[in-house]
């Protein structure tokens, strides 16, 4: 009743929505980079939305299902196969028999792939979360070759051949639109009008120094009217810090809890999953909206995901 990593990928970890409630101790929340794809994978696997999943990067791992399994993959658009034959579509519910081997052949777009298995993984939470804390190498599970992750529960029926449910779901993440929405940060007002305009007009390229801690961006440098050093305050997921070299750094899942760089803006919560699916070398543009609009966008996204979750539940109950 488990999966086994036959060959590890670039970075494969167990993640959930994050370890909240401990940032006052310097313990950063970590968690999935793209909560949208996590929820889609869970919905398709018949799980509750917060069930821990495996987050994978490219190159992706080779995984063997040691038991009959119902699973789903979501996130990056990939060509995946079972036993190097049957192609496994993303955003579909898949059933495979024990001994099946999942490998990823090609990635078309996106940066992160999520795998959910029905009934979830059997894990030992640390401080109420199963997210892998990479810096501490604790909590969740940083998966390497040979790693085994147990399931909570076996399927109620046996599987003899690879099959899919006859429906798929559409991810609300649209990577063809490179707009990332932001709200103003505390130090936004320290930019003069020209610099504000430049920040909004810039086409920012995602630097190869980007990772789960944050995305470093490269564009025409933007400077404050007077360079300033701030004493440390809390920073959160999505905070856009302006580095002394005039380039922005967007903080993501593994960000530190506090920081002292000027906070010129914050990527809205609804756009963090999309940003997390853009890869090194790709370009994005920022567009300013109000906090009310940001909340509306998050609400709409949540509604779409809730409807998808309900639809999946009803369909599965029908079968």
């Amino acid at each position: 009743m488990s999966i086994r990593i036959i060959k590890k990928g670039l970075l494969d970890t167990i993640q959930d929505r994050g370890r909240y409630g401990y940032q006052h101790l310097g313990i950063n929340p970590t968690g999935v980079m793209d909560f949208v794809s996590m929820r889609l994978a869970n919905a398709l696997a018949g799980n509750e939305e917060q069930e821990p999943v495996i987050e994978m990067h490219w190159p992706a791992p080779v995984i063997r299902f040691e038991t009959d399994t119902c699973f789903a993959i979501s996130g990056a658009a990939v060509i995946a196969r079972i036993d190097q034959q049957t192609e496994i579509p993303v955003n579909r519910t898949v059933f495979v028999k024990a001994g099946s081997q999942l490998s990823f052949e090609k990635k078309l777009s996106g940066a992160r792939i999520y795998l959910a298995v029905q009934n979830g993984f059997n894990l030992t939470p640390w401080l109420n979360s199963n997210s892998t804390h990479l810096q501490l190498n604790h909590g969740g599970h940083h998966l390497t070759t040979g790693a085994v992750v147990e399931f909570n529960k076996a399927l109620s029926h046996t599987i003899s051949i690879t099959k899919f449910y006859p429906w798929y779901i559409q991810s609300p993440i649209d990577l063809s639109d490179s707009t990332i929405h932001f709200t103003r940060g505390k130090e936004w007002g320290l930019l003069d009008e020209t610099m504000k305009e430049l920040f909004k007009q810039n086409i920012y390229q995602i630097s190869n120094e980007s990772n789960r801690m944050g995305y470093r961006l490269n564009g025409t440098p933007v400077y404050l009217q007077h360079s300033t050093e701030l004493i440390s305050t809390a920073v959160t997921k999505g905070t856009i810090q302006l580095l002394p070299n005039g380039q922005p750094l967007v903080l993501l899942a593994d960000h530190q809890t506090t920081g002292g760089y000027p906070r010129i803006g914050h990527v809205i919560s609804a756009d963090v999953p999309k940003l997390a699916q853009f890869e090194t070398g790709q370009s994005i543009r920022f567009k300013e909206i109000t906090i009310e609009e940001a909340h509306q966008r998050l609400k709409n996204l949540d509604l779409y995901l809730k409807q998808t979750e309900i639809a999946c539940k009803l369909r599965m109950a029908d079968l």
Partner: peptide, 21 residues
Amino acid sequence: ILDIIPAYSSITVVYNPLSFT
């Protein structure tokens, strides 16, 4: 509330916006 983060001379509350919808 998800987190309450005190710093040198500031304190930040992190909240779940969906709790208010």
